[in-house]
Every structure is written in C-alpha cells, then in structure tokens.
Simulated scan of single mutants.
Amino acid sequence: MSDTLLKPHPLDEATYLRSLGPGRLAGRTSAAYWNMAGPFGGTTAAILLRAVMEHPDRRGRPVAQTVNFCAAVAEGEFEVLVRLVRDGRSTQHWLVELVQGDVVAATASTVTGPSRETWSHRPGAPPPMPPSQALAPLPTEGRNAWLGRYEFRFERGEPIPGRASAEAPAPALSRAWVRDAPPRPLDYVALAALADTFVVKILQVRGDIPPVATVSMTTYFLADEAEMARQGEDYLLCTADARAFKHGFNDQTAELWSAGGELLAVSNQVVWFKG
C-alpha cells in the first residue's frame, strides 16, 4: 500500500485529539484549515463534536450542536474538556470547551440520542440544481487555506470580491455542490465542518470583507448512519441565505442535502461584522 493511501485525510489530522485523562483531550491547530486570523470555524465545530463522539459514555448519534466562538483560537496547542451533564433515556446533553491557557476560545452544547424508527414526514425538498459536473469549480488558489480543503461548484451566489457594493447589494442566497478535498466519506465530524463552509455572506452581498467573525452556530443533524453511508464521498447540495444585516450582526441559515435528495443537516448562525 502506498504512503498516499496510508496518509490520514487533512480533516482527520486537523481534528485529531489525544487523551490526557477522563474528559480531557489535547489537539493542535492545522495550517491546512487556516482562515483569515485563525482556524476555519468549521474545524473548531468538528473538533468539539469529535470530543463527544469519542467519549466512552456517548450513546447514539449527534442530534444538535451549538458552538459559541468566544475568542480567536491561536496557532498551536489547545485542550478540549468534555462533560456529560445529563444522561436521559432519549437524549444525552454534553458541555464541551476548547481552552488555550486560561482562555476559553470556544464552547459547545451538544445533544446525542439513538435513532429510532418512528412516523416520518418530509415536506421539504431540495432546490433544482444542474449536475455537479455541469458547474465549474470555484478557484481557491491564493485564498485562505481552508477554502482549498473543499471543492465548491456554485449554481448561484459565488463569492467574488467587488461584484456587489454597499450601495448596490447582491442577493444573499447561494447554492452550490460541495465536498471535502480530497474527497472523504461523510461522517458527523465532517458534516459539522461542512455546515460552516458558506463564505461570510457580507462578501457576497456587499462585495468586501470587513473584520468579521461567526459568534454562534447551531447545527441540527437530521441524517442517520445509513443516510450518511449512502452519501459516501459524493457532493452535498448546500444552500445558504441571510435575512438581515443590522447593528453589526447578520443571520445566516443553511441546508445540506445529500446527492440523493435527503436533508442531512440544517444550520443557523449569527455573524458579527464591523462597519
């Protein structure tokens, strides 16, 4: 077997955690997922979820995760503290912290629970999209490193600096086929990161990037293990929109659909911006 086949995927390297004892783990930031002034927020969410997924007391699959980005994550080592705060019959509730020195850089509230066969109803439907191969990939050379860790094929809402302006803002809706680069079989850790792959909406709407940062992001995981396995390494159909930019904050909503039309996850976040 070649070294290439043996080498871990960049996402697995970026989210690797080693045990320091019960409820304590250690990791290190990855240059492969670097953003403007720190790690791509999706990898922070993925790290916090991995801490729960690898806990020996975890039952079931992720149902919901809320990540609060409290401070900039600095390059280098960090610790993750994970604690089960409520072990109910149907759900478990976890608290997770990412800490550097005496600074809590991010926290997460995570809910896990077993998948059950119940009544189901699916009124939502994915938007019409051309096949992924009919759309050109977004050029990522020379941009923040994390963008090169994904393949984007936009149908609309491609983030291009200078295309819009504050005086003539563009629509906030975006639709794209997205997958890990290199391709990677989908799991919940990857899905937590993919839920944050929508480039900050102010660039799309206003055409520039002021100082900006996601403050809080909640992801609801709707897919079970079988749906994740069916998705494999294929593209996800990702849509995102924003409804208001005001008082230095904007909202952002997103849907992540499988190639087969299953709604895998939805997310909501609030973003701070300056100016």
Rank of each mutant, 00 (worst) to 15 (best):
V215G: 10
V205F: 11
V200K: 02
V199M: 07
Y188G: 02
P183I: 03
S115Y: 08
A136F: 06
F198D: 10
Y220R: 14
S132C: 11
K201P: 01
P137E: 05
P128K: 03
R184S: 01
I160L: 14
G207S: 11
W177C: 04
L135R: 05
T110W: 03
F154G: 02
F221Y: 14
R143E: 01
A172D: 09
V178K: 04
A145N: 11
E117T: 13
A106C: 08
G148S: 14
T219R: 02
Q204K: 01
G148E: 03
L191D: 02
P130D: 12
D208S: 06
A134R: 15
Y220F: 14
P171N: 09
A125C: 10
S165F: 05
T107F: 08
P169I: 09
P131E: 13
R156T: 15
P126S: 10
V189L: 01
G124Y: 13
P171R: 11
G162E: 09
R143C: 02
G142S: 05
M228I: 08
S109F: 02
F154P: 05
P211M: 10
T110C: 13
P185F: 03
L173S: 10
E167T: 12
F154S: 03
F154R: 00
L186V: 02
P183S: 06
A134C: 12
R149E: 08
P159F: 12
V212M: 06
D208L: 06
S109W: 00
E155G: 08
G157L: 09
R206M: 14
D180Q: 14
R143I: 03
E151H: 10
R163V: 04
L191F: 04
S132E: 15
E167S: 13
A226F: 03
Y150H: 12
A223M: 09
M217I: 02
Y150T: 04
S115C: 12
G124S: 15
P185V: 02
A134D: 15
E167H: 10
A108G: 06
R156F: 08
G142D: 07
Y150D: 01
T218V: 00
G148R: 03
P126M: 12
Y188I: 01
A108E: 05
G113I: 09
H121Y: 15
V178L: 03
P126T: 13
R122V: 11
P130C: 07
A145V: 04
F198T: 10
E151L: 07
A176N: 12
G157T: 03
T214C: 05
P210C: 12
P161K: 05
S216G: 13
L135Y: 10
P131Q: 08
S109K: 07
T214N: 06
P131C: 09
V111K: 04
L194E: 09
W177G: 00
Y188L: 05
V205L: 09
P169Y: 05
A170I: 09
E158R: 11
P114R: 11
P130N: 07
P114M: 06
T110D: 08
A192K: 00
S132R: 13
D224T: 01
S216K: 14
S120Q: 15
G207C: 10
P131R: 14
P114Q: 07
L222D: 03
V111Y: 00
P137L: 04
